[in-house]
Every structure is written in structure tokens, then in C-alpha cells.
């Protein structure tokens, strides 16, 4: 019995120890980003263009570039995701087909992002002749976040109570009216959370856009369809390779902190909306 107790104590100790270790590592990472990034932050850092290859000046256009790419991707993706969800829920009746459809979307989610960059460039950059440009980046990211949006919206549409639709039909609503009056409003939370998460995913992505959408210098805002942009992600990548230069590192951490803030705001908003939903569901 004593040995059992000892064993219990020891394993509990190990459990707490390992968890604390893991938590500590993650905490150290966040603290590092904040303490290293904070000194770089200032109004001028946020709102000035970068100078001297990113060693001086700010990250204004980099931030804008990240926002353009992620917002563009979400805008392009949303109608397709919404349509494909409705296709899946309203049009596909056979369970086998639904299953295959699910599987295809699921596989898309697992594809390593660098592959989206490779094939995406081939399609959008070469075939559509968009070249290395923000349009190519937007389209590649749109494909990348499609599964994220799809499943959030799907979940929401799937859980609309049957009698809502029946009520709509009984009122003699046309398909278009049915969609406007019942399906869209009732799945709004799925659309919003899906879009927010998609935005967060697009904002954090570097590999898929680094050789397809961005340029190193001379870029402010895209002035035509085939202009490249500059983004926080690729800016950090360039500065990180100058890791022996303290100026470069400070600005890299500053840009990193801004990027992290964008991603965290988006995810927190999602969590917040969802927590409200979960509490309501419990009631």
C-alpha cells in the first residue's frame, strides 16, 4: 500500500513537472517576443515606411501588405466556401458522396503550405500570368484557407434546426428568400468564426507567399494587378537572416510582435464568440 501511495505521489509529481515544463517553454516564447519586440515599437515604427533595407524606419507597408493579402484571401474564399457548404448540405443527398466530399476538403487542409505556393504559382502566376504579385498571393492564400472556412460554415449550417427550414418552406419562400431569411442569418456565427480563423491562418503564413507574392524593396502599395507587395512575414524572414546585426533583430522582433498581435486578436475574437455560444448552448 505504501509503495502504491509512493507511486501515486511520484507520478503526480511527474505529471505536474512535465506540464509545468511545457507551460514554461510556451510562456518563455511569448515573453521573449514581447520583451524583444516592445523596444522597437513606437508610433513611427508602426506608421513609417521602412528604410535602409529594413534597418531603419518602420513597417507600415509591411503591415498593409499582410492585411491586403489576408483580407483579399478571405474575400475571395468566402463565396466559394459558402457555396461549397451549401452544395454539400443542400445538394448532395447520398451519404457516400457527402463522405467523399468531406474527405476531399479534409485532405486539402492537410496539404503542406509550401505545396500551395509551388502549384499555386504554376496556376495563378504562370497560367493566369499574374506573376509574382499580390493577386497570386491572395489566390494562393484563398485556396489555403478554404477548408478552414468551409468546416466552420458547414458546422453552422448543419445545426440549423429542421423546423426553421420547414417554416420557411411553409411560408412559400423561394430558394433565394430561404437563403436570405433562414440559412445565412442562422449560420452567421459559423461564417464569422470561420472567416476570422481563415484570416489568422493567412496572416501567419510565410512559405506559400515568399516566392510568389512579395518583393524585398521598392514596394509600397500595389499599383496594378501584377505588383508584388511586402509583408510582415517576409520582412521578418529577411531581417532574421541578418541575425548578427542588432538593429535588424530589433526590427524583426518588433515586426514579429505586430504580426503576433494581429493573429492573436483574430483568434481571441473567435474564442470569444465561441465561448458565448457554448455558454448559451449549456443553458
Amino acid at each position: 500500500m505504501n509503495r502504491r501511495l509512493l507511486k501515486e505521489r511520484l507520478s503526480m509529481f511527474a505529471l505536474y513537472g512535465l506540464t509545468a515544463g511545457g507551460g514554461l517553454i510556451l510562456a518563455v516564447i511569448l515573453i521573449t517576443v514581447f520583451t524583444k519586440g516592445a523596444p522597437a515599437l513606437s508610433v513611427s515604427f508602426l506608421f513609417e515606411a521602412s528604410r535602409n533595407f529594413g534597418l531603419e524606419g518602420g513597417i507600415f507597408y509591411q503591415t498593409l501588405g499582410t492585411l491586403i493579402l489576408m483580407a483579399g484571401a478571405a474575400l475571395v474564399c468566402l463565396p466559394v466556401a459558402l457555396g461549397s457548404v451549401l452544395f454539400q448540405t443542400e445538394f448532395l443527398h447520398s451519404p457516400q458522396l457527402k463522405k467523399i466530399f468531406r474527405l476531399l476538403i479534409y485532405s486539402l487542409n492537410a496539404v503542406p503550405t509550401i505545396i500551395f505556393g509551388l502549384i499555386g504559382y504554376l496556376f495563378f502566376g504562370v497560367f493566369l500570368e499574374a506573376g509574382v504579385s499580390w493577386v497570386t498571393g491572395v489566390l494562393i492564400l484563398a485556396v489555403m484557407i478554404l477548408p478552414t472556412l468551409h468546416v466552420s460554415i458547414h458546422e453552422a449550417v448543419e445545426t440549423i434546426p429542421k423546423h426553421y427550414r420547414e417554416a420557411g418552406l411553409a411560408l412559400g419562400l423561394s430558394p433565394g428568400q430561404q437563403m436570405r431569411a433562414v440559412i445565412l442569418p442562422q449560420s452567421l456565427h459559423g461564417i464569422v468564426t470561420g472567416t476570422l480563423l481563415g484570416l489568422a491562418r493567412a496572416a501567419g503564413e510565410t512559405a506559400a507567399i515568399m516566392f510568389t507574392a512579395t518583393a524585398f524593396s521598392g514596394v509600397d502599395l500595389p499599383q496594378s494587378w501584377t505588383d508584388p507587395v511586402t509583408t510582415l512575414q517576409t520582412h521578418i524572414l529577411v531581417l532574421a537572416q541578418e541575425a548578427a546585426n542588432p538593429e535588424a533583430l530589433t526590427n524583426a522582433w518588433g515586426a514579429g510582435l505586430v504580426l503576433l498581435a494581429i493573429v492573436f486578436i483574430l483568434i481571441t475574437a473567435t474564442l470569444w464568440i465561441r465561448s458565448g455560444l457554448e455558454m448559451e448552448a449549456e443553458r
Binding site: 466552420s152 442562422q186 456565427h189 459559423g190 464569422v192 486578436i265 465561441r274 455560444l277
Partner: peptide, 19 residues
């Protein structure tokens, strides 16, 4: 593993505004 139920539009709109 997790599920979402009906929405709370007030929160959603606030969340969007925040972003």
C-alpha cells in the same frame, strides 16, 4: 470534438468591430 450552436449576434458584431 467541439460544437457550436446558435449565434449571439451582439457578440459577433462586437467582435467584428474590434477587428
Amino acid at each position: 470534438m467541439i460544437s457550436m450552436s446558435r449565434q449571439n449576434s451582439g457578440k459577433i458584431i462586437l467582435g467584428m468591430l474590434l477587428v
